[in-house]
Design a protein around this nucleic acid. Structure first.
Lengths: 214, 214, 214, 214
DNA sequence: GATGAATGAGCATTCATTCAT
DNA sequence: TATGAATGAATGCTCATTCAT
């Protein structure tokens, strides 16, 4: 039987209330979505006005949901990290006796493809200081460790590498591809694979070396 | 009788002339230095006013030397790239039958330690469009290729990797270390070494895995 | 049964809506007014900051209404020209069998009294390029032609003069009076009258010759 | 016998001194010339740097001769007025029993053709306050009066008009032509002629009415 | 006397954030 | 609650003028 989730009892006009909350939630999502797209496309310097406009809400609504532009950025980042984590979990669950790490790296990299913002901000003190982001990040590292452990049992990855190693390399891929364009990613990932793969493993470089000329 | 008149083209009133020029040049250097430091510390968004103040010159002096903030950024970058290139040349010259690539990578990475700007801007269309920067960049790639060729003869590097591959990985190291702090660099470089080293080569990871917690 | 629902197109929440708009519109007017006065008094070089201050609004509010200082200038000019055109229309309408041209010239001249800006800018390529201004200007010339035709039927004006002639002379009056002070205007206008009046018409110079000494 | 103009006695190295003075004077003239041209072409807002460059001298040399930009403008204006006065004197001297006023007006107008600056500044309190300019201006008015008197004896000009009237109209011509372009000048002058000519005199409008469209 | 580098005050404009409605 | 108008602080940049040489 489906759980009949109880509404908080103190709620005299539940329909109205819920409608409002639904609207508010939708606004939040819309802002988040617009911000995500615009940050990806044009960097963290896009004005909040434009984000609000693209989201189809007023400026003040944006600021009601995210008291500060910083907060909005953090929320976008946390969102993206959460999505990545969800994907990782699914992949690990379904991995069986296949290697899972490299697929994950590719997945995340593609997801962030051309995102000049995702990691642009992460690492700044102010961002790492944010508990939400910290938590998401920690989770990511743990999942990466899980993937590594899984693959290590299969003899696929080099001894000594950790989840944070993999994440660090992945950060590099994302940040650099943001500059060199997505064409550089395949190559870069294949180099990362070479770094992480167990010594005996066959390891071919794919893609073509980056040209530095867009 | 031959005139003993000094050629004006040589250097008339050398003391005076040179003093003026020296002062001007010093100001240019001071601005360049201040900008380099501030860009490193706080990113490209630092105001020109602050740069001028730190350099101990007026705003207008800054703009006399670098008509645009963009120009200043470019000059700083070109300067840093040139220094890197000089180092590379020296190392290649003195390499003998020792491998040279990894030393070079370490050198550049250390040099850029904590520089959130060096590569932040490079790769943006506007910057790659700048001929000075383009030239410096191209030269860097070529020197990297030379290093690789040198080391490949010694059987030290993996087949198929190019100078631009190495540079791409190095970019990743610099950009990421800017976020994770310099502690991450040794580890990151050892991973890069693993990616580039010839398969048979022994290849230990050094440093400790990054913590993502400053 | 017909719905008694108010059309949103009419004016939903008219009080609120109108109040907001009224405030905004008032700000626009205040800026326009302040700009008009300051341009008149001190030329087009007055800073936007001072204009905003005089209008009692923040700088940014000024820029919300007029994205560029240029736009503000154009709006002021167009406003003034429109007012002049309205007056002309009224005068022509009520003229009957009385001459109308000279009254119009006086009216406009008085209106622009001491305005160093109204025509200072008009005529510059950039301004004539502006469609709004161009249209207003064209209308002014046409109305001047109408006035001339009206008066010509009464035998009051010289053959061959056109609306643009009259406007050109009037421009001269305004620009010069801006320098010599409003005392010069009556005299100047009486000279213009002498230039435009039909040869037989009696034509006395009035006012006193300008002294060039304020 | 030619006058042997005595040098001021206190002058131990007359050759050198004179050379220096000649150089200084030439610099002054060069600056004046460059300023005249640039003011004409681009208005009073041209930077002093550009003027100095065009004059082939350093900025400081410019400021040695004209302690203030204002002073330079005044000097240019005074120069132009003096030239106009010289011309007027010559014309009056050679007039005989021919009318002289209209020729003078045309001459001055042509001289100032497209000069957006000559009268742009004159009339401002600050400028009229300048004694040099005031004197030049007064002289101009007097010469204009002389011309009028001369022509009045020939029955060519309307009773009651004064030199300052004529100058005022002329100012209008110059200022307006600066906006409408030189094409408007012939027409404008013919209208001025109509204003000043004695009532019986035949008086045709020439040139074509201005279009206000560059 | 002449120079060009240096300067600070000033400019138009933008932006994250707040407030009145 | 949601809005868009309002705001002032900050930014990159220019210019007449001064100063060291």
């Amino acid at each position: 039987m489906a759980t009949t989730r109880q509404e908080p009892s103190a709620d005299p006009l539940p329909g109205v209330e819920r409608r409002q909350r639904a609207d508010a939630a939708r606004n939040r999502e819309r802002v988040l979505g617009a911000a995500s797209v615009l940050f990806r496309e044009r960097g963290l310097d896009v004005g909040v006005g434009e984000i609000a406009e693209r989201a189809g809400v007023g400026r003040a609504t944006l600021f009601r949901n995210f008291p500060t532009k910083q907060d909005l950025i953090i929320a976008v980042l946390a969102d993206q990290i959460d999505q990545a984590a969800d994907d990782m979990r699914a992949r690990i669950r379904n991995a069986g006796d296949q290697g899972v790490l490299f697929g994950i790296l590719e997945e995340i990299a593609e997801r962030q493809e051309m995102s000049r913002s995702m990691f642009e901000a992460v690492g700044e003190q102010e961002f790492l200081a944010n508990p939400e982001l910290r938590k998401a990040h920690t989770e990511l590292v743990e999942l990466m460790d899980e993937s590594l452990n899984h693959d290590r049992k299969l003899g696929l990855v080099r001894d000594g590498v950790t989840g944070s190693d993999a994440l660090m390399l992945l950060k590099g891929v994302c940040m650099v591809s943001d500059e060199l364009g997505p064409e550089s990613m395949e190559r870069h990932l294949s180099l990362v694979r070479a770094a992480l793969a167990a010594p005996g493993t066959e390891c071919r470089l794919t893609g073509c070396a980056p040209s530095f000329e867009r």
